[in-house]
Deep mutational scan, measured.
Amino acid sequence: KELVSALYDYQEKSPREVTMKKGDILTLLNSTNKDWWKVEVNGRQGFVPAAYVKKL
């Protein structure tokens, strides 16, 4: 599985998104959309802005 690192804090703005803190390591589930990537963090799945994470 592919991992990404959070470059910035992000506070979810809808139920489809997830909150992350800078430095968090997230499991990348889907990166086909260039703007929003689906990740899993702390057992929750949702979307984060692609520009806020980088692949490890």
Rank of each mutant, 00 (worst) to 15 (best):
K1L: 14
K1C: 15
K1P: 14
K1G: 12
E2L: 13
E2W: 13
L3F: 14
L3D: 04
L3E: 08
V4E: 01
V4M: 08
V4H: 06
V4C: 15
S5R: 15
S5C: 15
S5A: 15
S5D: 04
S5F: 15
S5E: 15
A6Q: 00
A6V: 10
A6L: 02
L7S: 05
L7F: 04
L7D: 03
L7C: 11
L7I: 11
L7A: 06
L7K: 09
L7W: 05
L7V: 09
Y8C: 15
Y8F: 13
Y8R: 15
Y8G: 06
D9H: 06
D9W: 03
D9M: 03
Y10H: 04
Y10W: 11
Y10F: 07
Y10I: 01
Y10V: 01
Y10T: 01
Q11K: 13
Q11A: 13
Q11E: 14
Q11C: 13
Q11G: 08
E12A: 15
E12C: 14
E12Q: 14
E12P: 15
E12H: 09
K13R: 14
K13G: 09
K13F: 05
K13V: 08
K13P: 04
K13L: 10
K13T: 13
S14T: 12
S14C: 11
S14H: 12
S14M: 07
P15V: 10
P15E: 12
R16P: 05
R16S: 13
R16N: 14
R16V: 11
R16F: 14
E17I: 04
E17F: 06
E17D: 05
V18S: 02
T19M: 04
T19H: 05
M20P: 00
M20W: 02
M20Q: 02
K21T: 09
K21L: 08
K21A: 09
K21I: 09
K22C: 07
K22Q: 11
K22I: 07
K22N: 04
G23P: 00
G23R: 03
G23Q: 03
D24P: 00
D24T: 06
D24I: 04
I25Y: 06
I25P: 03
I25K: 06
I25R: 06
L26Y: 09
L26W: 02
L26V: 08
L26I: 09
L26N: 00
T27S: 09
T27Q: 11
L28M: 04
L28G: 00
L29C: 07
L29I: 14
N30G: 07
S31E: 14
S31P: 06
S31R: 09
S31Y: 08
S31D: 15
T32Q: 12
T32S: 14
T32E: 15
T32M: 11
T32A: 12
N33Q: 09
N33I: 06
N33P: 04
N33R: 10
N33L: 09
N33C: 10
K34T: 11
K34Q: 12
K34G: 10
K34R: 12
K34E: 11
K34D: 11
K34V: 11
D35H: 15
D35N: 13
W36H: 03
W36Y: 08
W36P: 00
W36F: 07
W37I: 05
W37Y: 08
W37N: 01
W37F: 08
W37P: 01
K38S: 08
K38Q: 14
K38P: 02
K38L: 15
V39L: 03
V39P: 00
V39R: 00
E40R: 06
E40I: 06
V41H: 14
V41Y: 11
N42H: 11
N42F: 08
G43N: 08
G43M: 05
G43V: 02
G43D: 06
R44N: 07
R44A: 07
R44V: 10
R44D: 04
R44H: 08
Q45P: 06
Q45D: 07
Q45E: 13
Q45A: 11
G46A: 03
G46H: 02
G46T: 02
G46P: 01
G46C: 04
F47R: 03
F47Y: 15
F47H: 06
V48L: 02
V48D: 01
V48W: 01
P49Q: 02
P49C: 04
P49Y: 03
P49V: 02
P49D: 02
P49A: 02
A50N: 02
A50Y: 03
A51F: 09
A51W: 10
Y52D: 03
Y52K: 07
Y52M: 14
Y52W: 08
Y52V: 07
Y52L: 14
Y52T: 08
Y52N: 06
Y52Q: 05
V53F: 04
V53I: 11
V53C: 15
K54W: 08
K54P: 02
K54G: 12
K54Q: 14
K55D: 06
K55E: 08
K55L: 14
K55Q: 10
L56A: 07
